[in-house]
Nucleic acid binder design. Sequence first.
DNA 1: ATTTTAATGTGACAAACATCACAATAACAA
DNA 2: TTGTTATTGTGATGTTTGTCACATTAAAAT
Lengths: 187, 187
Amino acid sequence: MKKILREHIEKLIPLTDDEFSFVLSHFSAEQYDKNDFIFRKGEKVKNCYFIISGLLKLVYDDKDGKQHIVSFALEDWWESDFSAYFSEANTKMSLQSIEDSITFSLSLKNYHKLSAEFPKMQRFFLNKSNTGHIASQHRILSFLTSNARERYDQLIKQYPLLVQRVPKTLLASYLGVSRETLSRLSH
Amino acid sequence: MKKILREHIEKLIPLTDDEFSFVLSHFSAEQYDKNDFIFRKGEKVKNCYFIISGLLKLVYDDKDGKQHIVSFALEDWWESDFSAYFSEANTKMSLQSIEDSITFSLSLKNYHKLSAEFPKMQRFFLNKSNTGHIASQHRILSFLTSNARERYDQLIKQYPLLVQRVPKTLLASYLGVSRETLSRLSH
DNA sequence: ATTTTAATGTGACAAACATCACAATAACAA
DNA sequence: TTGTTATTGTGATGTTTGTCACATTAAAAT
C-alpha cells in the first residue's frame, strides 16, 4: 500500500526514503466496504483521498432526487469535493464507494503543511491539479461536441476497464443521458 | 498594467517590491486587436496568458467546421490550451480575441523557472489551478443537471457582465445549444 | 434454496432541441 | 453615405433524447 503511494508520487517526483517517510506521515489509511459513504452531501470534508484500490463515485443529488455522477475515482486517482475541501465549507456532493476500497486520506491542514514544508510535494500537487483541470476540460468538450452515442464511445475508448466494472445505470448518470437511452445505443 | 498583475497575485500571495520585480521579469506584455488570434489550432503554444484587459475565447473546431467555445477569458483570468502548453504538443484549440485585449504572457520555461525558484509563486499557480479545476467541474455539473434554459440562467447569474459583452451566437456555442434555441429561450 | 433487490432491455409516447429557410436589424467598412 | 457583413428572431419540420410502463435476467441477501 505504501509502495503504491510512493510509486504514484515518484512517477512525477523522485523521493529519498526519508522524504517519503515524511510525506507518508501526513496521510492515513482508510478502508471502505462497497456502498459505504466516504462523506455525504452537507457534511464537512476533512480530507482528500488517494485511491489505492477500489472505485468511488462523486455524486451530486439534484432537487428532484436524481443522482448525477460528477466523477469516478479509480486506483491511482485523487478525489474529494474539492470546492468544499479547500474552502472548508459544507459539501454539495457525496463520495461513495462502488467497490470495496482502500484510500490514503490527506487533511487540508496536512496538505498545506506538506506544500509549505516540502516544495517538491507542492510541485506534485500542482501537476496533479493541472492534469485534473485538463481532464475536466476534455469532458466539457465532449458535452459540447458530441451526442450521447459519441460520448459513450469516447468513454469506452478512454476508460475501457471502468466501463466493464460499472453498471450501465451509473455510466448513464456520468454521461448525462437516461439509462434507457444508453441501453438503446448498443444497436 | 503592472499594477493589475501585482494586485491579482497579491490577492493570494503578498509580495515585496523586489519579489514582484523578479516575478514580472518572467512575463512579457502583448497586445491584440479584436479578432486577432493569440494562437491557432495545430500550432505550438509557447505561453499561457494572463488577461489584463479585454476578452478572449478558447475555441474548438469540430470535424464539421462548427465552433465550440470551451472557455471565455476575461480580465484577471489565465488562459491557454493548457494540455498543449504543458506537454509542448500541438494545440487542438485556438485562442482568439473578442475585444481589443492586453495580456501578460508566460512561457513554459519561465513558468517552471518561477515555480522552482520561488515557491510562493508555485503556491499561487497551485491555487489558480485548483480554482480552475473546480470551475470546470461546476460547468460539467451544469451539463449533467440542467437543460438549455437553466444553463443560460446560470450563466447570466454567474457572469452577468460577460453576457452583455458577448453576442448570443457565442454564448450559445459556450452553452452547447444552437443559437436558434438560445434565441427562443427569452420567452 | 428462496426471497428480495438491482440491472437491463424495450415499446409507446412526449418533450427538448437541432436544422433549414428566410427576414429584419445592427454594426462595420469602403 | 452606401454597400457589406454580423447578429438576431422566428416559422416549419425532423431528430434526439427523456419519461413511463412493464418484462426479464442477474446479483445479493436471508
